[in-house]
């Protein structure tokens, strides 16, 4: 009997069932927390009631979007951490989200007219950020983890500046809409009903590709050379995951804006409980991340009456994740610096 039981299909499915219960429970909780005055009986039975409309047009799309976004960000964080062998990697911290925000805002504002191109711009921005940050952080064929984090910070600042330039130049009405979206809110935009399906497909493709890469990510922990000797191509794995993470994160940011630290907090918590095997960490992070974002989002709507305004959900995730990031950075400086 091992201290940590070996990962068997049975153990995997048990954990995933627990994760699914958590995500569904979080969605149900969010339904009530987000709109306490909703009477579910009426909302489900009476199609002419305002309750029915509120459930179908507001709450369900918002919760679905929260689930997809949380799953994508958490799984992308876990995959990036494994890929870069850096426990502090996260789409937000590495500037991938910043690149996606700039890319999606640029294509929206530069006048393609429709918000539907935003995910494409997000993908291009995310991919560009990932390539630039990785290239600059690579020294003699190795990625220097701390340097990569620093470059990510600088890249985020540059993306922020880029957004301000766009804001100054573009049409005020469009700017207002785009910036609202980038603030990090999972509320679905009723004028663009196609965004949620686009986001779901992009995230779904990304999640499947990440899950298929799980064993390769495990072997990569041993170093590129040993991974190669075990039949994995680290370069191909990196390329595939960079592309699918950019697609998924690009679409996520384009639709819901900057929701930071989910990719950091969730995989970290999951690993503490189940160990580092990506075959379990990736899908379980997706489920836990889905639940986490939905609850965080419901809590901002629950707080809205007291605050007089609704905070962006990204504020909540940053308030939880920022301190945790600092604690991690302080806790294991040597291991990260390696």
């Amino acid at each position: 009997m091992r201290a940590r039981p070996a990962l068997t299909p049975r153990r995997l499915w048990l954990w995933l069932a627990a994760g699914a219960v958590f995500a569904v429970g979080a969605a149900v909780l969010a339904l009530f927390l987000g709109m306490p005055e909703l009477d579910l009986g009426t909302a489900l039975s009476d199609a002419s009631s305002w309750q029915y409309a509120a459930l179908h047009k507001l709450q369900l799309p918002r919760i679905s979007q929260g689930l997809v976004v949380g799953a994508t960000l958490a799984a992308s964080g876990a995959a990036l951490q494994g890929l870069l062998r850096n426990p502090l990697a996260d789409p937000f911290i590495l500037g991938v989200s910043g690149g996606a925000a700039l890319g999606s805002a640029a294509v929206t504002l530069v006048g393609f007219g429709t918000a539907l191109v935003a995910p494409l711009g997000g993908f291009l921005g995310a991919m560009g950020a990932l390539l630039v940050v990785t290239a600059l952080a690579t020294e003699a064929g190795r990625i220097a983890p701390l340097r990569m984090l620093l470059i990510g910070v600088v890249f985020n600042a540059l993306a922020g500046a880029g957004l301000m330039v766009l804001q100054a130049l573009a049409d005020p009405g469009a700017v207002q809409l785009t910036l609202m979206r980038l603030m990090g809110s999972v509320g679905a935009d009723p004028s663009e009903p196609l965004l949620l399906p686009i986001l779901t497909v992009a995230s779904g493709v990304g999640l499947v590709a990440m899950l298929l890469s799980a064993r390769g990510l495990n072997l990569l922990a041993l170093g590129d050379d040993t991974a190669r000797s075990l039949g994995v191509s680290p370069d191909r794995l990196r390329l595939v995951l960079f592309v699918v993470i950019s697609v998924a994160v690009g679409a996520t940011v384009a639709v819901t804006g900057l929701i930071g630290f989910v990719g950091l907090i969730v995989p970290h918590a999951v690993r503490l409980v189940v160990g580092p095997d990506h075959r379990l960490v990736l899908p379980l992070s997706a489920l836990v991340g889905a639940g986490f974002v939905v609850v965080a989002d419901a809590s901002v709507s629950a707080l809205a009456p007291a605050l007089g305004t609704e905070l962006p959900v990204g504020v909540v995730t940053a308030l939880v994740g920022g301190p945790l990031f600092l604690a991690l950075l302080r806790h294991r400086p040597t291991r990260v610096a390696e």
């Binding site: 091992r2 201290a3 940590r4 070996a6 951490q81 494994g82 062998r85 850096n86 426990p87 983890p145 064993r215 495990n218 072997l219 922990a221 041993l222 075990l230 039949g231 690993r271 160990g275 580092p276 095997d277 291991r335 990260v336 390696e338």
Partner: peptide
């Protein structure tokens, strides 16, 4: 150097991949 808390047993088992 490894960044994650793999146990010795889990690492050895990777040889079966």
């Amino acid at each position: 150097a490894l960044s994650f808390a793999w146990t010795a047993f889990e690492l050895v088992l990777m040889g079966r991949a």
